[in-house]
Write a protein that binds this DNA or RNA. Structure first.
Lengths: 136, 136
DNA sequence: ATAATTGCAAATGCTTTGCTTGTGA
DNA sequence: TCACAAGCAAAGCATTTGCAATTAT
């Protein structure tokens, strides 16, 4: 039985190699937003022969196929997460680097409105909040 | 009589060199968001001896001093603009690369609210809209 | 069978840095 | 004067790529 990501690959005509299967598996078991180095070292625990070049190539391929999504938060290298059905944005804890996902429909609507007022159709957006924890 | 940027430098104790003055001048006459290469070539029209390393150093210095602000839009190298009194966000025309500035107070307020609901004090944010022109 | 994928190392592109000479306050 | 800045070339870092060997379909 194939995983979610493997099914997506088959549907998109993406050839399934052992490396890609493993990258998919490791990513689907990650609930955070690892960068390529981190992903590579998690992968290496299962197969130490997979090269970082393959991880870079796969992560890019999966992004283009809509399987992963890529984030370039301020001051960090690119991070990846498995694409989820529901769109969300991110809040980054500036002290710890922790990333919290959130959804806000009102902001989404306003963005669309702003774009339209300027004469544009909204195709994509990026919203990141940077904050520090309020201590109680 | 000194320019705006030159006054800021004096206030912040940033030493004024010919190179920095020229970089400030070229930037203050730019209404777009040039990257370092572009800035360097605009500068070279006035003084061809200023090195790109100096432009990199100055742009970083000015950013840290709150004189310039830096943007990393999707898929591009870092771009800079002169800091303005009023905060604004950006809409990027995905076909032309043109950048349009906008202000939306409602979105600003909602961002603050979202952060607080998650237990965070909002320190900074990044909002970019990517769109294509609606033809009439 | 054969077109696509891998691993490796070399190349890339942007940005930073060490060092020597030059210069602003 | 003299701490700081500039110019140059070399180094750094994340990412991409050419090529020969390997593999999925």
């Amino acid at each position: 039985m194939s995983s979610d990501i493997e099914n997506k690959c088959i549907n998109k005509g993406v050839r399934l190699t052992d490396q890609r299967k493993l990258i998919a598996k490791v990513m689907s078991e990650s609930s955070d937003h690892p960068d390529v180095d981190e992903l590579h070292s998690r992968i290496n625990k299962f197969d130490s022969k997979i090269s970082i070049a393959t991880v870079y190539r796969t992560v890019k391929l999966f992004e283009e196929a809509g399987i992963f999504s890529k984030h370039d938060f301020k001051g960090n290298k690119s991070r990846y997460e498995q694409m989820s059905e529901e769109h969300h944005d991110h809040l980054i804890d500036v002290s710890t680097g922790e990333i919290i996902e959130f959804v806000n429909e009102d902001i989404e609507k306003l963005q669309k409105k702003v774009a339209e007022k300027l004469g544009y159709k909204l195709i994509d957006h990026r919203l990141e909040l940077y904050g520090s924890k309020i201590k109680k």
